[in-house]
Design a protein around this nucleic acid. Sequence first.
DNA 1: TATATTTGCAACCGAATAGTTTCATAATCA
DNA 2: TGATTATGAAACTATTCGGTTGCAAATATA
Lengths: 106, 106
Amino acid sequence: MRRDIFQAIADPTRRAIIVLIALQAMTPNAIADNFNTTRQAISKHLRILTECELVKQEYQGREIYYSLEIDKMKEIDKWLQQFRKIWENRFTQLDNLLSTIKKQKK
Amino acid sequence: MRRDIFQAIADPTRRAIIVLIALQAMTPNAIADNFNTTRQAISKHLRILTECELVKQEYQGREIYYSLEIDKMKEIDKWLQQFRKIWENRFTQLDNLLSTIKKQKK
DNA sequence: TATATTTGCAACCGAATAGTTTCATAATCA
DNA sequence: TGATTATGAAACTATTCGGTTGCAAATATA
């Protein structure tokens, strides 16, 4: 079992669940209402999301409210950081090129 | 075959390849030297990365140089955007709370 | 207390995945 | 030209994945 955050967001249903519970906590039943699968399938997705700590549970009687562990999402952001440096650099280089051309025109 | 960018970065070997060729183009053989698998396995990963346009090829004789399509990486960034709003908001709320407490102290 | 509701878990199934070995093709070099 | 090198593709395999059905446990309700 790999069960890391990148594998977690690879599945489109799980990405949709993440978006769904990002703003408000929801029960498995309520989440499942939004999809074309069984409640048990959603339950399995929630287990995967819980295992990699992308989601937290809040017990309330027999109901369980699931909500997004927003801080965990930053790990993806962190990995992206190294590439962001590259694409921002590209822009800077382009800017420099453009201003050089501008100067040459003068 | 799903073959989208999120599925592409789910595999740790593919993520490592992406990092490896982010700064300079490399041939499949050179890439494979960095891993504990066969060249053919790397070739398959490169095919997947090519299929979802995360990577571009440059033919040079019998060698093929692979390099990262950095713009494609922005798609992940774009998806993250909606959550970035949330976590930045949290910080703002915390700031407001702190300044409210500060005011009350006065 | 008996029944209904909410939930997770186990067993099973078909499809996808990552890897291997083998082979074909094309370019380079002696 | 013949051998070597770089590469991709095909066939196969073990494992994982996402889904289903069926069941058990715990809470709520009549």
